[in-house]
Structure formats: C-alpha cells, structure tokens
Design a protein around this nucleic acid. Structure first.
Lengths: 195, 195
DNA sequence: CCTACCATGTAAGACGTTACATGATTGG
DNA sequence: CCAATCATGTAACGTCTTACATGGTAGG
C-alpha cells in the first residue's frame, strides 16, 4: 500500500505525468522506494478511480498525449491519514540470515563468497544513499529543491531534516549489514575456513 | 523462493509432516522465516511434484492420515545449490523510511507516536531474537538439538556458530532501528515538537 | 532520416496475507 | 463427551517482478 503514498508524496509537490514519476522512481526517490512503470501506470489509474488524484491529458505534438496528475482534496486527506496513522509492519524475512544460519552445509569457499558479496551488495546501496544524503545536505537534489520551492522558508529546515532522517535509516541499515558480514568473515577465519 | 529452502533445511534434519513444519514456522525457526499453513501445504506438494521431497502417508487412528516428507537426493542437490550459489537481493523497500522522509506534513503528536511505535515494534522483535540467541547458546532450542543430534561432534560448534550468526543479523537490525527512532525523537525535540 | 527519449500500457506468474472450511483424534 | 490439538487444505485478493508490446516526437 506504500506505493500509493509514495506517489501521493511526489504528486503533492506538483502535477506530474506517470512517465516523470517513473523516472523519479529510477533515481532520487527510487533509492527510498522503487516501482517499475508496469506498477505505476495501473496504480495511477486506480487512484484516479478512487478520486485521490485527477489527470489532465495534455497534447504533445499532433497525435501524442501525456496525462498529468494532481492530488485532489480527497487524496490530500488520504495522504494525511497515512502519515498520521499507524504503520503496519510486515514479518521480517531475511534471506541472508536464513542462509547464514545454515551455512555449515555450504562449501567453505561458497561461504566466503556469500559474505563477501553481501558486503559488496550493501556497499553499493550505501554509496547511493550516502550520495543522496550529500545531495540533501547541499540542497542539490532536484525533487527536494522543487519541494522546498513550495515550502515556507521557516519550514524548509524541517523538510530537509526529515528527508535526511529517512535516508539515515537506510544508511544505518547498510552499515549494519556490512559490519555483520565482516564479523561473519572473521568467524570463518576462526573456524579455519581456507581463505 | 526462500520458503522452499527453509523447508528443505528443516526436512534435511529428519522427516516431518506439514503440520509440524508449520508449528516450527510459528515459533523457533519462525522468527527467522515465517510462513502460514496456507503457503506451506501447497509448497510441499509443488516440491514433491518437482521430485525434491517424497511424502509417505502414515495412518493415524482409524481414518486419519498424516503425510511425512523427507528430502530426496535431488532435493539435497537443490538445497546445496542454493547454499553454494549467489543470493539475489530484492530492492529495499522501507515503509518506515518513506514515512520518516515526509514527516513534516504529519501532526506533531503523530510524528512522535510513529517513532515511539517503531521503537516498541523493534523491541518486541529484538526480545524474541535475543531469547532465541540465548536458547542457541544454552543449546536448549528443540530444532537445534535435533540438528546437533544428527551432526558429528566435531561439527557441532560450527552448526551453533552459524545459527548464531543468522540471528545476530536480525538482532543488529532491531538495535539499529531502535537507535534510529530514538535519534528521530531527539530530532523532534530539537524541532520543538511538543512532547 | 534516424536515434534517443517520451509515453503508456498488457500479461503471466511468483509470492504472500487473510479468511474460510473441514474433519479426526487424544486426553481428561 | 468435550475441548484442545492434530491435520490439511481452498479461495480471494493484493503486491511485485519480468517480459512483452506499441507508437510518437524532438533534435542532430
């Protein structure tokens, strides 16, 4: 259900087409929440059917159109309900933890590879999120700048602080995963697994 | 696809019925990987159809039966392929991060509640995982004891060490989430959100 | 003119949740 | 005999991924 609110959060800043939303989901905001086009377009239609957003078809060239959506009062209401209401937590399902817990049956080399790749994976994520944090601090993130443009000067620091908070959680997560896998590699050393 | 390997991991220790597997998924192993009965029974059938496991129907009383599954060589092969092969990582999707990043539009009281509930949620998870870690250290976890019974004495420490490693990842995660939300609450203080 | 980008979808399937549904057996 | 537990599912629905599919437009 969060896709809907990720979309509303973006649309609240200004009317946007499905294509532009999708592009944001591939870069900036996409590091926080990703969705492919095949999910975005149907969801926008459902949201329009539910009265949360309204789309206007704009003409492009002679025959082509693009549909630009904006949030309705009902959508604003729904969005605030999500923000002010409780979050439902999904059961934790960590494939990496599951695998680690049964690693004694793996080949020693495969155990090392698993942990090394785990580190590499989370370092990749960390780099993206760190870069995003830097863009937030420098206020050079396009989506953030657009949002700040529509925000009272007194509230701008708060907007930046919360956006930072959201990304910090991901950064913490990545660092924890890396530290854990490094500990795992040291465990392999202690267990005399060949390097 | 991990459900299949969680089931194989359990079945490798000894033949088990769907019902007993389901019970393990509600408690001990369930803290690591959960699945409801409505997912387990169909998956067992699919696995049997794929030749990874075989079931024997045992008579219970006069009319009732229970189906006890054991791993076939092909299943053992598949399991090792999973253990020795690479893990595919899903895109990170953190509803809590998403919400945090847009918290400036929430009511101050709701922002505090959100972070407090986040702490409470992860403290609940942490308590379960910590308790499981203690049972692992004390070797009092039933599933672990069964597994150790089928393990060479020389390999038992390794089995325990890896099981520990798996749960440690979850514990680290929970601690990081709690620390993050506490930092979030301090941020609200700094932003003069009423307590 | 042609390539890169704009723009919007459908279809199939895996995975997961929640609710519904049924009946047997064992122990007190 | 009755309650708790054993035992096994189906159905509907929502989410998400991957692959497939199509065509217009703008700029060099």
């Amino acid at each position: 259900m969060s896709l809907r609110y990720a979309l509303l959060a973006l649309l609240r800043v200004g009317a946007t087409s499905g294509y532009d939303l999708q592009k944001q989901f591939d870069t900036s905001v996409g590091y926080l929440w990703h969705a492919p086009d095949s999910q975005i377009y149907p969801e926008l239609r459902k949201m329009e059917a539910a009265g949360l957003i309204e789309g206007e078809s704009q003409v492009r060239g002679t025959r082509a159109t693009r549909r630009v959506y904006h949030v309705t009062p009902a959508g604003e209401n729904d969005y605030r309900g999500w923000l002010n209401g409780p979050l439902t937590y999904a059961r934790v399902r960590e494939p990496a933890s599951l695998k680690a817990a049964y690693l004694e049956a793996a080949e020693p080399a495969a155990a090392r590879t698993f942990l090394s790749e785990h580190i590499a994976h989370w370092q990749g994520e960390l780099a993206q999120w760190d870069a995003e944090l830097e863009r937030i601090d420098a206020r050079s993130n396009p989506a953030l700048m657009k949002r700040l443009g529509a925000t009272e000067p007194d509230d701008q620091d708060r907007v930046v602080a919360f956006k930072r908070l959201g990304y910090e959680n991901l950064v913490d997560r990545a660092r924890a995963e890396i530290a854990w896998a490094e500990r795992g590699l040291r465990l392999l050393d202690d267990l005399d697994y060949p390097a």
